[in-house]
């Protein structure tokens, strides 16, 4: 029980009739780290999580969670893990406290233990004031927090989060990220799925990009960005009238300059930090005002575009969206 990874998937495959939802996915999550499964709608993220959490038996392949085989040792896996599903699966007619009681007791906590643990989680997730209110009256963000609190009641060593922040407003997302970071500090291993690149970038130690049920790439966020190409020098000039002048000036230094007139932005492939200094001096010498000048690394968005051929996500989540398309799509496949 010492050196196994927290989660290990080997060649997982899942068929739904003729549909291949997951097609040979392998990865491993060291203990105490965060792995992000990143992919567009219907990529197979939810199906993968369902297999790892014993809800859906793999068509082929194996997976181990906390050292236990999901197929042959499902009970041991369930004891070791927590799951926060895509739709917040808290009981609407129960209060927050009762939800914690319900899952805590069913997880095997004693009657005496469940109460203080629940109170503690309510406090930690800023739900103490709403503890005795029926969940139906909660906002989307509160439901999500309660959902997460409920998953944590028995202190699982591995926590699966299926799109934990889908449908949350930006503020609640950032709050939730902070909570997740705290869990990792305390030693919990996280596996989360997301379609938000920023989320993967912010939270994950490793990222596995999947689409059409296959792994397209994996690595740390930095490695993935490196794969997408080199950094570039980006200049935003203050006066749109001087854009042409600025372009000429940059062409002296770079073979190719890409201009976005509407954004007053010029981009060129950088060879190093020295380029930024050189360009900066030249702009100062020519007295062209600049709003912004710097080195930009490719974003995960660029990575995603490179790998999948389409953008990850229209900007920003739709707050409080009840039914997100991914859920419906993968739900229909069930």
């Amino acid at each position: 029980m010492t050196d196994h990874p927290a989660v290990e998937a080997v060649d997982l495959v899942k068929h739904f009739g003729a549909t291949v939802a997951v097609d040979g996915v392998s990865f491993s999550v060291p203990r105490g780290t965060v792995l992000g499964l990143l992919g567009p709608n219907g990529a197979g993220k939810t199906t993968t999580v369902r297999m790892l959490t014993t809800l859906s038996p793999p068509t082929s392949g194996t997976a181990r969670v906390a050292g236990h085989d999901v197929r042959t040792e499902a009970a041991a896996v369930r004891r070791a893990m927590g799951l926060t599903g895509q739709a917040a699966t808290v009981d609407e007619l129960l209060t927050g406290r009762e939800n914690l009681w319900l899952i805590g007791r069913l997880s095997g906590l004693s009657r005496r233990a469940v109460r203080p643990l629940g109170d503690d989680l309510l406090e930690r997730f800023s739900l103490s004031d709403a503890a005795d209110r029926v969940v139906k009256t909660y906002s989307g963000g509160m439901r999500r927090r309660l959902d997460l609190a409920v998953s944590l009641i028995a202190s699982p060593s591995v926590l699966f989060l299926d799109e934990p922040t889908t449908g949350l407003d930006p503020r609640s997302r950032i709050d939730l990220w902070e909570v997740l970071r705290g869990l990792v500090r305390d030693g919990t291993t996280l596996l989360l799925t997301t379609q938000y690149l920023e989320e993967a970038d912010q939270l994950c130690d490793d990222i596995v990009v999947i689409d059409h049920g296959r792994v397209l790439a994996s690595g740390t966020p930095t490695q993935l960005k490196d794969q997408a190409g080199r950094a570039s020098v980006v200049v935003t000039v203050s006066d749109p009238g001087r854009l042409d002048e600025a372009e000429l000036l940059m062409r002296d230094c770079f073979a190719e300059v890409y201009v976005e007139p509407a954004a007053r932005k010029l981009t060129a492939q950088a060879r190093g930090l020295a380029d930024v200094a050189t360009i900066g001096q030249r702009f100062v010498a020519a007295d062209i005002g600049v709003d912004d000048l710097g080195l930009a690394r490719p974003s995960l968005d660029d990575v995603f575009l490179n790998l999948t051929g389409h953008r990850a996500e229209p900007d920003g989540p739709e707050p409080e969206a009840d039914d997100d398309p991914d859920h419906q799509l993968e739900g229909a496949a069930r």
């Binding site: 997880s107 004693s110 503690d120 930690r124 028995a154 202190s155 869990l183 030693g187």
Partner: peptide, 12 residues
């Protein structure tokens, strides 16, 4: 403070 996960796992 969240109960630390691994060391003092409540009895389950």
């Amino acid at each position: 403070a969240l109960p630390p996960a691994a060391p003092t796992r409540p009895q389950v």
